[in-house]
Design a protein around this nucleic acid. Structure first.
Lengths: 218, 218
DNA sequence: TTTTTCGGTGTACACATGTACGCTATTTTT
DNA sequence: AAAAATAGCGTACATGTGTACACCGAAAAA
């Protein structure tokens, strides 16, 4: 039982996954791919597809998982950079923009299937985004000593803004990308500052207002 | 030249548009509609479609225009309510949520085609959203006396947050809708407060800090 | 009135799709 | 060594697609 068979199977399964990812582009969405196309691109007969996935949907959900994984890698990378010092917001945005530049199609997949026609897909994408948000929430809560609710709202809003900026970046001329990043950074600072001010107000109504703003908003 | 002919033509054109809109749902996107389906739903022979649109794309762009129109109606309605007094943010969010409840499929169309596979569609949707944003920007600028750039950034961020909330609302249980609205309102307040604080700081560095916050953030 | 225009129809075709079915060759199990 | 399992192939078929084409009848223009 050397597993030479299972090994080969895993390999062609990857070929299918990579074939699908490879066909994604700004004018080609996953839902517009056909089983036959993917199989052909992977160098397989159409019917062989079924040895690996029962459905294009099943392949699609696998891709979403894959994308979620990439997203989490991204965060780890960002945290590494942050630990070396620097503005959290600035580094996060820059990291995200780099991610989109080299993983545009994966990001497109998430964007599109989030509002797609399959409930399962939408749920899967939202799950990945929720992980992303919750990790940011944890960070905010302990780094900025924020109320749990405020931290969550801030994290959620920030992720929304960043994803939207990412979406814009996909259709952006390369030269306008830096400006877009700058605007995004400013918007995230609005949110951070607002959350801080209002969060403090919640704890300690109308006392200690807007003092010592050593947070991320300047 | 009574125009009885042109009249009839306009009528069946509308039937096509309505047929397309009618087929949209959470599990049916415009790009998944076929010319034949739409024609059939409109009570037409497939080939008659071409008397009105050269393409499904042309129909689609018409739908996006239609959606933009609906969106602007929405804003007018919101402004009417605001003029009668009340929190701008609260009323705007409520109005938007009502819009989604009764125009879910139109909103879905915008959401989906914004990240769709046709550059023309993406551009059309972004144009509509830009109008929406700019009108809000004007309002903020004169109502809150904000710097032009700050007002734009705030408007843009606010629209992003509201659209994202709308997207969530589409998959939401009805009972969770009120909570979602509340969270959205808080997030918009973060942004408004942050924009105010930072905007003032821009004009008049480290003087007059966080004074007379009679804006929309409390 | 005669002629032209044109919205709508039905037929027809080439094409792509998903997938059922049976076969083969090779690995795995017995 | 014999038997079972299985990844991959090719064929085949029913179905849905966009659209070219010829035609019709009524409205509009001459």
């Amino acid at each position: 039982m050397s597993g030479i068979r299972a090994l080969q199977k895993e390999k062609t399964r990857r070929q299918l996954i990579d074939a699908a990812l490879g066909q994604l582009s700004s004018e080609r969405s996953f839902s517009s791919l056909s089983l036959r196309e993917v199989a052909k691109e992977a160098g397989l007969a159409p019917t062989s597809f079924y040895r690996h996935f029962s459905d294009m949907d099943e392949l699609g959900l696998t891709l979403v998982d894959e994308a979620g994984l990439t997203l989490r890698q991204l965060m780890r990378q960002a945290r590494q950079r942050i630990d070396k010092g620097g503005s959290v917001i600035q580094i996060s945005v820059r990291t995200f923009m780099e991610f989109i530049e080299s993983n545009g199609n994966i990001f497109r997949l998430l964007l599109r299937e989030r509002s797609g026609t399959s409930k399962a897909f939408r749920a899967a994408v939202n799950r990945e985004i929720r992980y992303f948000t919750l990790e940011l929430c944890d960070y905010l809560q302990q780094a900025n000593k924020l109320d749990a609710e405020v931290a969550y709202l801030q994290a959620n809003a920030a992720v929304t803004i960043v994803f939207s900026a990412g979406s814009d970046a996909l259709d952006c001329d390369k030269k306008d990308l830096a400006e877009l990043a700058q605007r995004t950074i400013k918007q995230l600072r609005f949110i951070a500052r607002g959350a801080f001010e209002i969060g403090v107000g919640n704890k300690n109504r109308s006392e200690q207002r807007s003092s010592s703003a050593k947070d991320e908003t300047k």
